[in-house]
Amino acid sequence: MTSNLPGSLEVRDLSCERDGRPLFSGLSFSLEPGSAVQVLGANGAGKSTLIRTLIGSADDFSGDIYWCGTPYPSALPRMRQSLLYIGHKAGVRRGLTPLENLAWYGATRSDALRALEAVGLYGYEDVLCQQLSAGQGRRVALARLFLPSAPALWILDEPLAALDVGGVASLEARMSGHLAAGGMVLLTSHQPVNLESLLQVDLANYQVPWVSGADHLLDLQEVHSGD
């Protein structure tokens, strides 16, 4: 089913900051084959930073991240071979048709057609993506999950946003199938996700307390309230 060897993603005592402001610290969890993690947190809690760190695009972190037992950043090339990432920006080229977009991600024509049918874009495969609606564009990106060549580790930023009820159900079914086949899913979502063996990680539990007196940052608000 999956085109790569199963691995595991392990996060140990991870701390991230953004623009000198600590977001979370002491975050630990592990993602084994067949399991899923949902990252929760308010806006600005650091969900995007966590995801960027996990896919290896941001490197200002302390703590350890391991892929198949190898620490970042040396594990990144191998991790990326098993990675399917769908971010806030869908990664769908507006000047290409859905079929060409999937081909760009390495799909064969027949696989791509089946995947597009699965996300309800049957009949749109030769329409330029710039003519599709925002929701449909999002579906083109999600169609990557329905390709038989989809790699093992899925990291999805708000995959359920802008999907209707039927779309959510079909995506959940696909994720269940992927997990059953030994895949891994890490996603952020504001809405509940119906998946078995779903581990929820709430970034609110790892927020950095403001330590005064130490060489530590203070919140903006505290400074503002002082005058």
């Binding site: 007196g213 203070l218 400074v223 005058d227």
Partner: peptide, 22 residues
């Protein structure tokens, strides 16, 4: 300018840092 939010800069500049900071 960059570290004005940190404790050491605030201590260094004394109370006046609160006003300049904001």
């Amino acid at each position: 300018q960059r570290e004005w939010r940190t404790q050491w800069v605030r201590e260094l500049l004394g109370q006046s840092s609160v006003a300049t900071g904001s």
